[in-house]
Design a protein around this nucleic acid. Structure first.
Ligand SMILES: [Mn+2]
Ligand SMILES: [Mn+2]
Ligand SMILES: [Zn+2]
Ligand SMILES: [Zn+2]
Lengths: 142, 142
DNA sequence: CAGCCATTTAGACAAAGTCTATTCCATTAA
DNA sequence: TTAATGGAATAGACTTTGTCTAAATGGCTG
């Protein structure tokens, strides 16, 4: 039996996917249940291994296809901080990150805790698509 | 004959390397001449191919070793924005970036054009190591 | 010249991610 | 109920970026 407390029901996930214009297949719902259980940052590989801890195997291609689709539909946010892998963030609200360079862990910065003084002039013929702020931290050696 | 205008002399590079505590070998100087010619953002692969357009071949391992060493010694800055490769930035002054998601090109934001309103409270037991701000832009469709 | 030791090197290897050709499967039509 | 359709899933080959290893190189110093 699974932890009911942090569990989101299948139907809630299906709703969420439908609202985003994503056909709720078996695999997408299962991935959604894991990813959307709480605000978190997971790599494709982590999703793959958690999904495949129970039930029928979901292929690597499907994991990547699904995460890419979720990202395109705004259900997750891709966070680029680790040169070796992308993090998928189930928290899609506007926020920024601490990145611990020792442990490789990502932490949310509450919005309101951080803001830009002003927006710089954008390059000609471009429009802003988003802003990513990463504060790299490490264990303070007192 | 090479373009003398944007050329940095070998001895200038050797000086720069020595000051940073890097033994100026043939290969390191050649890589330095390319990278330090102007403020720019290059991937390891780009450095490899430019270096090997002329003169004796420099191995891939040496390119990675050298860029890693330069980064450790503060001669270049690693910029993580593209999920598929690291950019090495010859501009080591404090600044941030525009990233064109259509073209994949990186542009500097003049410091002073951008600043944080305030520093958020860091996670317990950590100290800030640096801040990276990336403004993702794309071609504005009028 | 001989020895030393950092550096360079070729190429094997690893990990993340992409692609392709085929199979599967839910839905609709007959 | 079966048949046809088309989107989705799959295995595994492939690509790319980057790392590692073991051997060769090459500048210095004695
Ligand atoms: Mn499963
Ligand atoms: Mn060359
Ligand atoms: Zn987050
Ligand atoms: Zn820059």
């Amino acid at each position: 039996m699974m932890d009911e407390i942090n569990m989101i029901s299948k139907s809630q996930i299906i709703d969420k996917l439908k609202k985003a214009g994503v056909t709720p297949t078996q695999q997408r719902v299962e991935i959604g249940q894991i990813l959307f259980a709480k605000p978190q940052h997971m790599s494709a590989d982590q999703v793959l291994s958690v999904v495949n801890q129970t039930g029928p195997v979901v292929s690597k291609a499907t994991i990547y296809n699904t995460l890419g689709l979720f990202a395109k539909k705004g259900l997750v946010r891709e966070v680029i901080v680790d040169p070796s892998k992308v993090f998928y963030d189930s928290n899609t609200s506007e926020h920024h990150h601490f990145y611990d360079i020792d442990t490789g862990s990502l932490m949310d910065i509450n919005n309101g805790q951080l803001r830009l003084e002003s927006m710089p002039v954008l390059p000609d013929g471009t429009e802003a698509e988003g802003i990513d702020i990463v504060i790299r931290v490490r264990k303070s050696m007192h």
